[in-house]
Simulated assay, not measured.
Amino acid sequence: MTTYIPNLTLPSFIFNSPAASILLPIALGTGVGYATQPRDNQRQYMSWKQPPLRPPPWIFGPVWTALYGMMGYSAYRAVHLGTSPLNMPHTISAAKHGATLYTIQLALNMIWMPLFFGLRRPVEATVDIVALLGVNGYLAWLWGTKVDEVSGWLLVPYIGWLSFATYLSAATGYLNNWDLRSHEEKARGKKGQ
């Protein structure tokens, strides 16, 4: 069982507002996406050896926006409904524990793109996304079985996409010998040796 850690959990006002819960992950995801220079990312992405079933780069923005919205609504439902004083103490506890897990998974989600595209660290990015997948699997189970079934089910598409993204992350790293630097960066690295 996880623990509710107030210092590692988003403020309760976010979870108690459907708009804030939904818009926060969308805004954070959009900000991280733009901060890592999307045009450069698309060029990089297309230059790497890719595994089968690789979607075109334009698909990621709409898919992630929808998933962030569902994730945010799931968090709103689980925490807002689960922490109602009319609930049993174990339901309130599970909702709060889930709020901490949700915050942790949001942080893990936000660091994947800078790891993979910004720093070009596919090993670390793959470790991050595997942890993200595990945390969300547990979170969906926790909220879905202990707090609100709908909240758990709302995370299922996210878990499905994370599974696919884990495959893409690991396979792209593997196919490129875990080195995603550009040809120019590799050449500069060889000159420095």
Rank of each mutant, 00 (worst) to 15 (best):
N87I: 03
L132V: 06
P122D: 13
V123W: 08
S93K: 15
V127H: 08
R120F: 03
A94L: 04
L101S: 09
A125V: 07
M88W: 10
I92S: 07
S93Y: 11
V130Y: 14
I129E: 04
P89R: 06
A99E: 11
V123M: 10
T100M: 09
L106V: 00
V130Q: 05
E124A: 14
L108N: 00
E124W: 11
E124F: 08
I104W: 12
H97M: 11
A94W: 03
T103H: 05
T103I: 06
T100H: 08
I111D: 02
M110I: 03
H90Q: 09
A94Y: 05
P89A: 07
I111L: 12
T126G: 02
L101I: 08
T100L: 07
H90G: 00
P122F: 09
L86W: 12
P89F: 07
R121G: 02
L101R: 07
W112Q: 02
G98T: 05
R120A: 06
H90N: 11
A107V: 14
V123E: 05
N136G: 11
W112E: 02
V127L: 15
I111K: 03
G134L: 14
R120I: 03
R120W: 06
T100W: 09
E124T: 10
W112P: 01
M113A: 12
A107S: 10
T91V: 14
A94S: 15
L132I: 05
V127Y: 13
N87F: 09
T91A: 04
L115R: 04
L119R: 13
A94T: 04
T91I: 15
A107N: 01
I129P: 07
V127C: 12
L132Y: 06
P85H: 14
T91N: 02
W112K: 01
A99D: 12
H90L: 03
F117D: 05
S93N: 15
V130W: 14
H97N: 13
T100K: 07
A125H: 13
Q105D: 06
P122T: 11
F117R: 05
A131Q: 10
K96T: 08
A95F: 07
F117W: 10
D128W: 06
L106G: 01
L115T: 07
I129G: 09
H97R: 13
V123A: 10
L86Y: 14
L106R: 00
W112R: 01
V127S: 09
V135C: 00
N87R: 15
M113Q: 14
H97F: 02
I104G: 03
F116W: 15
Q105R: 05
T91Y: 03
T91L: 04
V130P: 12
N87E: 15
S93R: 15
I129N: 08
R120C: 01
N109D: 05
L115N: 10
W112S: 00
R120T: 10
L133E: 04
F117M: 05
L115G: 09
F116A: 13
T100N: 06
D128G: 04
M113N: 14
T100A: 03
G98I: 01
P122K: 11
T103C: 04
